[in-house]
Computed example of a mutant assay.
Amino acid sequence: MANIILVIVLCICFYTDIKTRKIFNYITFPTMLFGLFYNLLISGVDGLLFSGKGFLIGLALLFIPYMLGGMGAGDVKLMAAIGALMGTSFIFYSFIYTALIGGLIALLLIIKTKGVIKTIKSFSFNFTNVVFLKSSLGSIILSNEKINSISFPYGVAIVLGTLCTLVWGGF
């Protein structure tokens, strides 16, 4: 039952994140509550703890990137909802798959937008500065200007990473 709810929620969030760049509370909050109550019903207090830990871990994994402005609150709440529904180990594997997929998407978008040569030069320059300690942490970022920044709906990476975990499980 939890897998079916998970797939439905992921499909809805995938669509809304691509279409509106938002993951809505009216999807994530009921999923969190369902996860808590479902696991409580199935396994009692142990199920509630299973779900609660998954919720907290899911929330914690993306909280710092959210606070730094790297993603929206909907992404964080989606991970928390997945954690509440599926538990701690599932959310860890989902996070790893999500990070890999998100990094790949970001790399492809950078290459597409800035071109291969410019991307390599920028990476080389930033890497050299970091290695030789000639720059501050801010130079690691390709661009500080919002005009030149590249963004994408990270919910897509979360959905794909979670589906990978659902299909393949852990490593």
Rank of each mutant, 00 (worst) to 15 (best):
T113M: 08
V130E: 07
K118D: 15
K77E: 02
G170R: 13
S139K: 14
T88F: 14
F34M: 07
P30W: 07
I140S: 07
L104G: 13
I140F: 08
C11S: 13
N148Q: 14
A81W: 09
T28F: 01
S89K: 07
F90H: 03
L33F: 10
D75S: 00
I82M: 09
Y26E: 03
F123P: 12
S139H: 14
L61W: 10
L68V: 02
N129I: 05
M1P: 08
L163Y: 10
I82V: 12
L100D: 05
F29R: 03
G69C: 08
I101D: 00
G47E: 00
L36W: 10
I42A: 11
I12Y: 05
L10E: 00
I147A: 14
T165Q: 04
K22L: 12
F95R: 00
D17G: 00
D17L: 04
G72D: 05
G74D: 11
T119V: 02
L6I: 13
I111C: 10
S89C: 11
G44Y: 01
L104F: 13
G52M: 08
G70R: 07
L40P: 00
L137R: 14
S43F: 15
M67N: 06
S122V: 10
V76C: 00
L61M: 11
L100P: 07
A2Y: 08
Y66T: 04
V167Y: 15
L40R: 01
P30Q: 02
F24C: 00
I4M: 06
V7R: 02
Y66K: 10
M79R: 09
K22M: 11
I64Y: 09
G138L: 13
G169Y: 06
I141E: 14
F24Y: 12
G83Q: 11
S89H: 14
L40T: 06
A2H: 04
A81C: 14
G169E: 09
L48I: 08
T119D: 04
I4K: 03
M67T: 14
L78T: 08
F132W: 08
